[in-house]
Amino acid sequence: MAEPLFSVRGLKVALPDMTRKPLVGRAPLAEILKGLDFDLPKGSVTGIVGESGSGKSTLGRALVRLLEPSAGAIAFEGRDIGHLSEGELRPLRRDLQMIFQDPMSSLNPRHTIFNIIAAPLRQNGLGDRLKERVAEALHRVGLPQTFASRYRHELSGGQRQRVGIARALALSPKFVLADEIVSGLDVSTQAQILTLLEKLAAEMGLTVAFISHDLSVIRRLCQQVIVMREGRIVEASATDALFDNPKEAYTRDLLAAIPLPEIDADWLKPKAPA
């Protein structure tokens, strides 16, 4: 297996628990991630799956260092970035990019698509040849050049998500975090976006953490899978092994709960007592 881009050991993240915040003073911390160990091999797509509250998004945000771990190490290319300051992270930012769930709220309504894609280029010292770079980014995701002068409201949901991908990839990052990037899209559009990401990840040799609640999508896109529950890793393995031979009961339950688009009269029958 390729050497890891990310090597994570004993990762814990604690966040303020606002439901227990006293009227005056700070909210107590709740441990969201309770000690995770895993590697993300270079050039691979890793699926991170779990139900709501499992900590999958928190994990993603820790990887791109939007959150600071409370314990453990996040080694990126062999260097622990877990406790770097904002200033120290700055040169790493272009290598750690994100594609967001909702392209509507993650694209500035008052900027043209050109400016949306250009902004991170400017900030990361790639402000020369802007037109060329933006044109290339649009081309890469299959959007016509005329879209550069448009605004987000003039685009369909699928086109907006293409812009989100174009912006993330414009910087030629080493790592892309894709957090539920198709859960707001219709199935017909979803398939287009996923096959696009699949193609680009392979072409550009990207390392991707693909967070999703949908195991069907993960099987197609990812080389390995991490199953999470309540802040812990339940099971992590190569994709085919996980689907063909799930070791944990929880993984089997997740798979059995997916309604596949095919007739199965027994699916809704109450579970036979074990």
Partner: peptide, 28 residues
């Protein structure tokens, strides 16, 4: 599901991801 008649229905079914059939499902 056995025999969808309209091309749009056929396309919708083919676009729906199935973990049992990763490479024939999820067709744009």
């Amino acid at each position: 599901f056995a025999a969808p008649q309209h091309p749009y229905t056929q396309a919708l079914i083919a676009a729906t991801p199935r973990y049992t059939d990763p490479y024939t499902s999820l067709k744009p």
